[in-house]
């Protein structure tokens, strides 16, 4: 039994240009959940995210976040923070400024703001990194800065677009633990695109499986990993015996 879902897509249709493959998303995500979004390359995971974030406009259908219709809202008006796989930081701005843009994109930072940025940096394990430039950070540290910016923005929904795909196993585990902790502390609704079943098993309570431009499954993690008769899912995991 679901309460008001944090996110719902009702018959959202989209295609890239007149010749693009048609996609259709119709699903709901419960508030406070942490969902792993999985699916083969080109299945539409990133498009799914782009539609939620407002980077792309649906050709039909409605998108609601926390009960509010955001279908035509500008990206910055939606209650969302977004972390990309790379290039989250403007390379010539220091860490303080990059995170500070999440507090107020228009004006300079006040002393108060700087305090908040430092706190957020401390929370992600980067105390003292305020003056550093992105080029002097490791890939994992850059993603931590992006998470710090998401923290100061205080938006209730967090979208992570393959955020740790470029990191090694150890670093990846640390980052997943951090995401899980932040998710719980701030009471977020989190969606994370990933290709690693281990990521989903480690932190996600739900899995959204996208196949050929539509939602093929949206269920608790355990249900999917305990064995299903969904051929596409089994094929994706490499579990199909007929090969």
């Amino acid at each position: 039994m679901m309460t008001t879902p944090a996110l719902s897509l009702e018959n959202v249709r989209f295609a890239y240009g007149p010749d693009g493959a048609p996609m259709m998303f119709d699903t709901a995500i419960p508030a406070g959940s942490l969902s792993a979004v999985m699916g083969p390359s080109g299945s539409g995971k990133s498009t799914f995210f782009a539609l939620i974030a407002g980077f792309e406009q649906p050709q039909a259908g409605r998108i609601h976040i926390n009960g509010e219709d955001v279908t035509t809202s500008a990206p910055s008006e939606r209650p969302i923070s977004y972390v990309f796989q790379e290039n989250n930081l403007f390379s010539h701005l220091d860490v303080m400024t990059n995170v500070g843009l999440g507090i107020d994109p228009r004006r300079r930072l006040s002393g108060d703001d700087r305090g908040r940025v430092s706190q957020a940096l401390e929370r992600v394990g980067l105390s003292g990194f305020e003056m550093r430039l992105p080029a002097s950070l490791s890939g994992g540290e850059r993603q931590r800065v992006a998470l710090a910016r998401a923290l100061v923005r205080k938006r209730p929904m967090l979208l992570l677009d393959e955020p740790f795909a470029a990191l090694g196993p150890r670093l990846r585990d640390d980052m997943l633990a951090l995401v899980k902790a932040l998710h719980e502390e701030a009471g977020l609704t989190t969606l994370m695109i990933t290709h690693q079943p281990s990521d989903a098993r480690a932190i996600a309570d739900r899995v959204v499986f996208i196949d050929r431009g539509s939602i093929a499954a949206n269920a608790p993690t355990d249900n999917l990993f305990d064995g299903t008769d969904l051929p596409a899912w089994n094929d994706y995991l490499g579990l199909n015996p007929t090969r």
Binding site: S76, Y82, F84, N87
Partner: peptide
């Protein structure tokens, strides 16, 4: 996209 997300004028 980050600029759009953050609402940079």
């Amino acid at each position: 996209r980050t600029a759009a997300q953050l609402g940079l004028p």
